[in-house]
Each structure stands twice: as C-alpha cells, then as structure tokens.
Write a protein that binds this DNA or RNA. Structure first.
Lengths: 190, 190
DNA sequence: GTCTATAACGCGATAGAC
DNA sequence: GTCTATCGCGTTATAGAC
C-alpha cells in the first residue's frame, strides 16, 4: 500500500471542505490553510480548482456505474439485486462520505466533464429502472410506477453520506440490513 | 389576491437561480440579468444577497415546523400521522420547488438566521422521531432504530423538489398515495 | 516545494444623475 | 426605479526568488 501523494492529500482535504460549504464557497486560500501551506503552493500539485472537482466526482461516478452494471448483469432475483444496490451505496458512502457530498451537490459545477458525468448517471439510472421493471413483470415487487420507486429508494441511498459518518459506532452490514428492510418491506407491521 | 411586488419577484427569480447553481455560485449580476435590470437596481428592493436567502429559507422552514407540530398534536394513529407528513412535504414542495432547493442545499450559508434555522429543523425532527417511537411502542410499526427510519423517509421527502416539477402531468394526491405505499408498506409483494 | 508579489478579473454594494 | 460609474475587496492562477 503506497502512501498518499501530496496531490491525493489535497483532493481528500478539498472534498472535506466541499462537503461543508460546497465547491463554489470554498476558496483556494481555504484549502491551502487547511493544508498548512499558501494558496500558490497548491498549484505545484494540481492544475486548477476545477481539476480537483473532476478528480473527486468522476472516479466515484464510475465506481457506481460499474457496480450497477455488474449487479444488473448478474443472475440474482430482483429483490437480491436491490439488496446488492443498497450494499453498494453503503460501501462506497462509508469509504468516501466527503466525496459523496460533491457527487450529489456539486456535479453541476463540472465543466469539461459534465457531459460524461451525465452519461454515467443516466446509465446507472437506466439499469436501476430496468431491474425494477423486471421485478414488476416477474411479480416480485408491487406494480407502482417504477419512476416513483426508484426516486424514493435512490434519494435515500444518495443521502447516506450525510448520515454514515455520524454512525461509525455501528456495523455497516447491520445498516445495510436495516435499510433493506425499510426500503423493500416498509415500516408497517404486517 | 394582491399581485406580486417587485421584491417578491426578485426573491422568486433568485430561488430559481439558486436551485440551478446554488447560492454561492449565483451573482447579483446573474440575478439582475434574469430580472432584466442592472445589478445596482436590485438594491432598491432588497438590502443584500443574504437577505434574499433568509427570505427564501426561513418562511419555508417555519411552514414545515408549524405543519409538523399540528400533525404531532393531532389524535391520529402513527401511520395516519406519517401519511399527513408525506402530504405536507408533497404540498409545500409542489408550491415552491425552487425554494426547497435552497432550504436543502444552502441553509449553511445563512448568517444571522443560522441558529434559528437549526432550531426549527431540530424541532421538526424531534417531533418526527417522537411519532415513530410512539408507533413502535403501540406496535403499529416495526421495531427498527427510529433514526434509520426517519433518515430514510425524510431524505426521500426532502428530495421531492428535484422531482415534482418534472411530474406536473400527474395528480399530487396520487403521488402522495404512491409515496405512502412505498415508504410505509414497502415495495415487496406480500 | 513553498514562498512573496502580483496579474487579471469578478464580487457585493454604494453614490448620485436622471 | 433604473441607470452609469466606481469602491474596496476577494478570486483563481502565474512568475520568479529561495
């Protein structure tokens, strides 16, 4: 395990600041201060503020789209695929809760990579919707508009980053299981 | 019904721009352009950019906290209270989807009103949690950590603003009903 | 690799003419 | 109520010393 480069450290610290105030409200001086150096010195390691945002968002978006593709192509049942999706979100969000904030809230500030990001997100959502439609067809899940179901589940999963760092005390597998129960079987008794 | 004042128009247009790019990334020049005037002219109607954000967020936050208090104090069952909460979110989000974006994403840029906002949010969440705990005690809902349940339901409801304006075609009561089914009874068949 | 200094520009907000 | 002009400051990024 190679130790963190200075560039990686900058990107990691930037993600923390972006989570607090958003990309636009964080200045290169803020970032430099958090790194213990002057703003100008940052430019020995990165090309621009925009490049930092690209690095944070694109790698995460690719991780989600790749993970979803594998789940979609597997032979599991619809319900099991949904459980795998929940695990995917819990796993990535726990590894990188800071980056998840930028992925959710600052993607619109991407410039050169904006189109690519939108394609990744669209591929992800299309796979998700297909899984739900297949589940309706096979009778595994209720016949409610798949758009509403996807919206409901996905917004919960996309917000996990807000919540996971406060809950380091308890087991991530336990969180996955609780979420699976709530999102799939609901909260009503019987 | 009195017609919209120039100040209200500025706040309404600002909320639209804030939804697209966030408070920090929208300049007074952007806002003026969208209003068809020069930036300096805005200051005949508003005192500062910060005051616009206050106006957008605080009135919405109060509407939620008041609505929640009424639901909490009613005599309905836990499940019916949850359905009322869902209707409250659908109702407010459909009336003001632009303002909801600021409420969700830009509250941390409040200055003088930040503490008050946090109190409103905290009151809201405490009432919500109490309703869930009462439901567990009475056996109406499953005994899963109320924190996880509230997180799951609330993040879905808080994200409605992203989704509602695209769905003007269909009935809001139908949306409330679909969401109630998904959030309360889940998506699994049987 | 970090520093100081600075370029080039955009920001929120104000003054005062009309 | 809107305009032009401008203030004072903050922004990203670069140049060049050490």
């Amino acid at each position: 395990m190679k130790s963190e480069t200075r560039q990686q450290e900058i990107i990691r610290v930037a993600a923390q600041l972006f989570k607090e105030k958003g990309y636009s409200a964080v200045t290169m001086r803020d970032l430099a201060k958090a790194m213990g150096i002057k703003a100008a010195s940052l430019y020995n390691h990165i090309n621009s503020k925009q490049d930092i945002l690209n690095a944070i968002i694109i790698s995460l978006a690719e991780e989600f789209t790749d993970g979803m593709k594998q789940i979609h192509l597997s032979n599991a049942s619809c319900i099991d695929k949904l459980k795998k999706i929940i695990e995917l979100h819990v796993h990535i969000s726990s590894k990188n809760s800071y980056g998840m904030a930028s992925l959710n809230n600052d993607w619109m500030h991407l410039e050169t990579q904006l189109t690519y990001y939108k394609k990744l997100r669209s591929d992800y959502e299309n796979d998700f919707k297909t899984i739900l439609k297949d589940g309706i067809k096979s009778g595994e899940i209720v016949n409610i508009k798949p758009d509403v179901m996807m919206f409901s589940i996905l917004t919960t999963l996309r917000s996990l980053y807000i919540w996971i760092p406060k809950k380091e005390d308890f087991n991530l597998q336990e969180l996955s299981n609780s979420l699976s129960h709530i999102l799939i079987e609901g909260i009503a008794k019987d």
